[in-house]
Nucleic acid binder design. Structure first.
Lengths: 355, 355
DNA sequence: TTGTATGCGTTATCAA
DNA sequence: TTGATAACGCATACAA
């Protein structure tokens, strides 16, 4: 029945000092205006009584909390969980505690979580995860964040700079452009792209950089070879199946139908899709990269040992998590700061030099 | 300069009602003893003033919060992030918000986080992740949880039932025993085990079930072929290198040295270690499963498409997250409830039937 | 350096 | 059904 909560008043009484003195002795704030002897007495009393300060009461009295909100689409996705690890590490350094929301890409839940963090008086909110091409949803979220910031909260995002807050901007276009150049250097000319959802901005940017770069090199991408699909492993699998069914991907040397020459390489806009595509290729009896080369994006750490090793674009996800945390916590700026982050092309065995 | 916080008093004044009425109208608690007309007026005033209830003040007045603490070793690890996704989903259903700590396997930080959650007056704490064979650390954590529970908090764990709280117990031994039986059925007799850290209880249990089952089948495991290593991809890689260097794993048909017959299959106590082992085998020019079969544990979703597909033991990680959440939130029991969860052996191409 | 008293924003108790 | 008013547990301005 020790459910009786021990309060600071109890500690003060036990130590024979006033509430104020007990408070000062225990939080040990800037101006430590408490005699060492008393201080000891208070600390001893607190220990004796197993006193545990009530963070909620402190938050109310101080007018600020120690919480940091983190919104991800899906914490089980390695992309987000790696960012989250960077965020938790940075938050711990800042003495903050991370409150996590995994919203399953539901705009309504994102909004609800921002409002929840507003109620919790969280110090800052971090929105990780690419936006969709849904102006209404983006504007609603942006508005909620404006409101939140107007009330003193910090906010930052990773992905596209669409929310009006400090953002770690992933340079998707330049990264895929560079990938194209390097694949070109290895002799690849004819590509297909597993493009993800049309409305998915990250997917779109990756496709766009890829396409633009191919245009620049004078070997434009055939629009028929851009396959929209889900941003998931299954999406990659099914899109690859389509390519195979249409005969644009098949046994090497077999100019099997489709529109002219067969595709030499398939670019999936993320790694898990690329892995799905590999699985589909194998299921169809094709060899990767013998029959078709495959490249992805993200360099998910768990996938670094797959066979054949996957050509991809590395993003420093944990660092990104740390960066966005610092942005969210930085003193309020008038104009949103944009911190660009480049991807690094990693050529591996899934796209060997073409003979 | 709308930094002026709108309080419930403001809403009450704006609506021309008392503070009490405003409170009742807005939280809409069980006994809705407020006239619809007034209620509307209050809600309208709240909306007009963009009122946002202060969760900390509510927590203090109500005497309970809406927070749920989750401790994982490493949120970037797919094992934990998948459990975390189950926890966040269940927590949302319960109207709770998840506070996340990624402790990097640091016992001190685990303890600190429990105390932090105690200060936050969190409703419950979930400890995910296997214990180490460190009695002092386990006891300290158990004590902290006892203290926490004595103050009204809920607590639950996943892994070993060593913390004195409700636990989702992973039946590691029976799972690996079943794996052995099935591999036996496919003709395997001579195994090596990449065993993880000796003090790691989960690793130990998996090894133990494996070994015991082999004993029962009359084909005991050679102790020299149990390689301690880190519980990581690199640990698996290095342990496999050792086996190769010692000549107990090598080209099929090449009875190359070592102690007698070469190893037919290598069991790694988790999937990422198994993948590391595969990488080491390939780096040494060996074929999997041609030269050596490999099996893992966990059935990490991101790894389901690797080649060759990995024989492993599936754990319903997201469900486990949901289950442990329910345990943590369930009304206080005297004796710790133990909920066993079985793994399901999934035979795949990395351990084909032996000729 | 210490103590007193007030406020933080809400809920809940008690009268009206 | 509504309204004063007292908690809730702590920090802090002000006084001593």
């Amino acid at each position: 029945m020790s459910d009786m909560t021990v309060t600071l008043s109890d500690v003060a009484r036990e130590a024979g000092v006033s509430l104020a003195t007990a408070s000062r002795a225990i939080n040990g704030s800037a101006n430590r205006t408490v005699r060492p002897e008393l201080r000891e007495r208070v600390l001893a009393a607190a220990a004796r009584l197993r006193y545990s300060p009530d963070a909620n009461a402190q938050a109310m009295a101080r007018g600020r909390t120690t919480a940091l909100g983190l919104i991800v689409h899906d914490i089980a996705d390695p992309y987000f969980s790696t960012i989250a690890s960077g965020v938790t590490a940075a938050a711990e350094r800042a003495g903050l505690v991370v409150t996590l929301a995994s919203t399953d890409r539901d705009a309504g839940r994102e909004l609800a979580f921002v409002e929840l963090m507003q109620r919790q008086r969280a110090r800052a909110i971090i929105v990780a995860g690419g936006r969709h091409d849904d102006d209404a949803a983006n504007r609603a979220l942006a508005d909620a964040l404006v409101e939140y910031r107007s009330r003193g909260g910090g906010a930052a995002a990773v992905g596209q700079p669409l929310l009006g807050v400090d953002t770690v901007v992933i340079e998707n276009r330049s990264a895929t452009a560079e990938l194209v150049r390097q694949l070109h250097g290895r002799g690849y000319r004819r590509f297909a792209v597993l493009a993800g959802p049309t409305a998915h901005l990250t997917a779109h940017e990756r496709l766009d950089g890829f396409r633009t770069s191919l245009d620049d090199l004078g070997t434009p991408l055939d629009p028929d070879l851009v396959i929209p699909c889900a941003f998931t492993r299954d999406g990659g699998y099914e899109a690859m199946e389509q390519l195979i069914a249409r005969g644009v991907v098949g046994r090497a040397g077999t100019g099997s139908g489709g529109s002219g020459q067969p595709v030499e390489a398939v670019f999936a806009v993320n790694d898990v899709m690329a892995v799905g595509a590999m699985a589909a290729a194998r299921a169809a009896g094709l060899d990767v990269p013998g029959d078709v080369a495959i490249a992805g994006f993200d360099d998910i750490i768990t996938l670094r040992d797959i066979t054949p090793s996957l050509t991809t674009i590395r993003l420093p996800l944990a660092d990104i998590g740390a960066m966005v945390t610092e942005l969210a916590l930085a003193p309020d700026n008038d104009a949103p700061r944009l911190v660009p982050v480049d991807g690094e092309v990693i050529l591996r065995d899934s796209t060997p030099p073409l003979a």
